[in-house]
Amino acid sequence: MATEQHRHNDRPLVLSTKNLRKVYMIEDLEAIALRDISLDIHEGEFVSIMGPSGSGKSTLLQILGCLERPTDGKYLLDGKDLEHYSDDELAHIRNKKIGFIFQAFNLLPRLSVIDNVKLPLIYANIYEPERTRIAREMVTMVGLGERENFPTVKLSGGQKQRVAIARALVNDPKVIFADEPTGSLDSKSGAVILAFLQELHEQGHTIVMVTHESYVAAAAERIIHIKDGLIESDEWVEHRHRVKETDTIK
């Protein structure tokens, strides 16, 4: 195991945290979401984060994804310490370097598939016709080319999550974060999404995925268990599960 732990040492570091701590204040009560998290993730890794409910998985992902700031500790993304970045600089980082996939999809329901995918490009100041070209490429890649003008409210859950994947990829990010991406899906469409993530990983994308299902977690090559805001274990998957689109997970 020990040798495998550093399997990707030769590759550049994408994420690196040291003694990360996150405390929420509810009224006067402290809620400690993360106690002390130190971890390194190298380019091209597919990491699952597991743990019981309330253990701090989402909080960790939000900090890694620059949606929250840590209370304490260091966080380097792509070699840069983000501590003193302004809100707008962080927005810029989220736009350029990070792709998000949420459990609840978080699409704008009245916009069409392609308009949803274009959103990050708008904030990246990429203009037409380039914008449509890139967005269309992504929409086609996730197999929704024929539905690009559908309002997303009319799509199935699995199709919505594919739109979200297309949107996450459209700015060619350094890391893709997925918080329970299959959590709202039936097993069949969940398998499709997992297969997509594995394919992206094979193409060289770095992926960090939160899940509390070991079957889903096993799609990754490395699993980090956290509990009460601390890392409990950090292991490489021995028998990686190859998800096929026709699989049904669970």
Binding site: D88, N106, L108, Y123
Partner: peptide
Amino acid sequence: TREIGLRKALGATNRD
């Protein structure tokens, strides 16, 4: 509010 949160998550600045 959620739309605003999403837009910010995708890179919208305060000014946007």
